[in-house]
Design a protein around this nucleic acid. Sequence first.
RNA 1: GCCUUGGUGGUGGAAUGGUAGACACGAGGGACUUAAAAUCCCUUGGACAGCAAUGUCCGUGUGAGUUCGAGUCUCAUCCGAGGCACCA
Length: 912
Amino acid sequence: MEYDFKSVEAKWQSYWAATGQFKVREDPSRPKFYVLDMFPYPSGAGLHVGHPLGYIASDIIARYKRLKGFNVLHPMGFDAFGLPAEQYAIQTGQHPEVTTERNIARYREQLDRIGFCYDWDREVRTSDPEFYKWTQWAFLKMFDSWYDPRKDKACPISELVSEIETVGYDDVTPQMWAAADARTRSDILMRYRIAYQGETSVNWCEGLGTVLANDEVKDGLSVRGGFPVEQKKMTQWQLRVSAYADRLLRSLDTLDWSDSLKEMQRNWIGKSEGTEMVFDTVCDGRHKPVTIFTTRADTVFGVTFMVLAPESELVADLTSSGQKAEVEEYLKYVARKTERERLAQTKSVTGVFSGSYGINPMTGKEVPVWISEYVLSGYGTGAIMAVPAHDARDYAFARKFGLPIVPIIEGCDVSEQSFDAKEGVMCNSGFLDGMQVKDAIEAAKDYVEAHGIGHRKTNFRLRDAIFSRQRYWGEPFPIYYKDGIPTPLPESELPLRLPEIESYKPSANGEPPLARAKDWTYEGCPLETSTMPGFAGSSAYYLRYMDPHNPDALVSRAADEYWRNVDLYVGGTEHATGHLIYSRFWNKFLYDLGYVCEEEPFRKLVNQGMIQGRSNFVYRIVGTNRFVSAGLKSSYETTEIHVDIRLVHNDRLDIEAFRKWRPEFADAEFVLEDGEYICGWAVEKMSKSMYNVVNPDEICDTYGADTLRLYEMFLGPIEQSKPWDTKGIDGVSRFLKKFWRLFSDRDSAVSVTDEKPDAEELKILHKLIAKEQEDIENFSYNTTISAFMISVNELGARKCRKKEILEPLVVMLSPFAPHMCEELWHLLGHETSVMDAKFPEYVPSYAAEDNVTYPVQFNGKMRFTVEMPRSATPAEVEAKVRAMEQTARWSAGKSVVKVIVVPGRIINIVLK
RNA sequence: GCCUUGGUGGUGGAAUGGUAGACACGAGGGACUUAAAAUCCCUUGGACAGCAAUGUCCGUGUGAGUUCGAGUCUCAUCCGAGGCACCA
């Protein structure tokens, strides 16, 4: 009987749902395995075939681990707050919640068709008040904590307060504190809180009407929407992620993530160890110390000028009256530029002389102080010492403004470009002369510290995360303003629900949409009107899955101690510097406060590649309605037009369907090749506008969910990006049919025998067990599927119908093709689900080769191997080795004196 | 510019330092069929020799090196992908 995937898939999907097959609960008697997908943002377009790639991979692992006896947590949910729903709301007035609900329902339907074994009872949605209660709760905890550098962890802010009250902390004395009013005290503590409010230069996106985090901006444009972004000073809620920079960096080493991803995070954190040095400056006769940061303290004798960032507070103090007008002109010019323009012009050098002079602390020489946008206010101290001979940026600046260039490394040529390498012998550098650069760096640091000029300092590129968004569709802050002072809501008031408003636009005076809400107050005081950003809800969702319905805690201690952290996390690299940093930060914070027992959230991470679309084109001859086949288009002047890939099969256009596609093509004419119209193609992002989106439902309709699953895995390594191309899908579809036919003949669905398998059949089975076990651990599914294909062909050729061989095959294939295997499992007479079966035990001796591989040594050193039948006698092996032609060739000029065949299966050849 | 990757047939891709190209697609040929679909079988990196079984040589971006042996290790170089980019 032929396999009827439609009825079988529907049957088992409803069976799984009805019997609660996928429900999971804590079970201390079994080892746990937590496998997680990055939950999707439910967009209006629905799923395309690229989305399930990672989901299928993790589903296979989940099912495999379950067969191996693990208690598997494999949940799914939705990252439901986000911009598209809100923008749709602004256009249509439709509440984002309604749109989101609808999109989720659609996603759910599509996911269910593929047969994932998610425990939907554990579903989370970030926009659900019962979920975002815990996002708000974590925020309150962060507001109520500070980072104690001596303990190197977050601690309750009350500890800081009592320290200030008794002995003082930093520059805050007990006397100051005692004298301070509520406002001042609040301001002081804001400098330490993990979640704090502060003025900072932010990425302001006018097009979206909101600020954005660094990872939400790319090339000066917003990642969502592609609107230009500019720098603006604003007071915003922020998370002190920078306090965790060093820990985030250090514990990367403990994670089983890809090197490239770890490297991305390392670069993003950007640790650099250098020196802070104080330069005295003189401006119109007034002295002011200026601290600079450098990683090249050794080059201090080559300093010929200093540069301040235009946004630096020092600019005002260091501008001489004579240069005032010019400096102001320059500051205006810089402020006008958007981030994008600034990026586009990185090669152009701009700047202005401030009129003041700095004094080199080593040489006592005076150097001019300049102002230039190439120095960033947010990094280091916003001021640098410039060494044009040994820094490319300083060099370009010096050349442009005619400043002196003084080399301090022997023999380097700085006539064309700077010499940036950290190598060579120092010169023109006083006490450093004659040293190697590497030694000189240390010597200079020691000198600086010994003479009180400065001290060693480590800087990080990682900035605090801007946490406010001037949007509606996000978590409200549990903060109100009592006498203008930001005050946390009591925990008992959580969740603070998003209020209903009439319009989702910003209010007329530019305030966020929440300012429109009626009674947006707490005890008569106004509530915060910003909402939290997208990454807030996704930062701890993996913890909520462990205990999703707990009303009293984000996660109970018991559930947390059982599930601990995610054993395997599958998702795209696009989250490398966003979600994956924030989550690690968030988790470490909760760890510091003792709410979770693991310091890192995701033990192993696998990045699935993207599936791109494969677009097809037709070529219209300019000014006509004639279309020319791709191979002939060079002889005409043509316009390239995207054509819906559904009208194209193997790059051949279905001309009739094309004519019906759009009215303007109804009477189109064609210039054909060999009677066919061949379309051009290109690999592009999957998108509606390019008519190249493939919907998984379509594949499920024509081939079935099992084929879709198998095919996506067969496409190649999961980590690789590749275009979607259905060319090979018939192959896996055929394989499934063959697999089915192993069990079924013309008349009956299943006919297997109880005959005992022979050695050859056992070998086929056990080789496959070994292969699957090894491959699944390495995420090498495509080769597992190949191995299945070979085994099925071999068994088919032998007409093997033996239950003892075929039944384990069903279990082994079930992670890949769950529907078919469930059906077969039941037809084989089992009452329970195939998911409750045990993965077959591997017996090495069954799989052993008939041939033995002998390592061959020359004079004791391992050289090569010889294969011989297991039954071969030592004499036969020796004869074989002697007879091997290559041996003679390798030992040209030498002769084989003796061949020793050791019983331990090692061959040693003695040469002379 | 810096960091991380990768480069293998017509295509997707296999290969613990040990027979390169598994498996699949596509293509060509054949069987079954009134026919089609489905299914099955054979050929399929290149060149050369042979009636043939088969054999020989060349082949993993390029050039060196280590090794008895390199797609795999080392160095250089070219090209592609991703990330970072005035971070001092």
